[in-house]
Amino acid sequence: MSWADLIVLLMVVLVLATAFATLFLRNLLGAAVATTLVSLAVSVFYVILRAPDVALTEAAVGAGLSGLLLALAAKRLGLWHIEVQEAGLDERGDDPC
């Protein structure tokens, strides 16, 4: 096991932790950012797996365009809160947008 293996292992653990954070973050805007971060890290994995074209597309579409879509949808859905959202806030969005 070399240094490269250890770095890859560390990155994989961080990516899985980020994916878990998507499911358990109270702040849904933060969850969207975590999803975008997972896409960005997976694009680095594609570079290591010698697929540079896929890495380019994943970084541009998966991280860039998809993150933009998520941010705009979060704004439309009334989830644009920087501070930590409490448990009742999901029901707080009762006003029609």
Binding site: A19, T22, L23, A31, A32, T35, V38, L79
Partner: peptide
Amino acid sequence: GLIAIGIGGVILSRNLFRIVLALSIAEA
């Protein structure tokens, strides 16, 4: 692990926005 987390999130989440996020993770 990403597929498992994504599918688990789709099944277990109550919030519609979080389900979309979990779908994106499973796809990655």
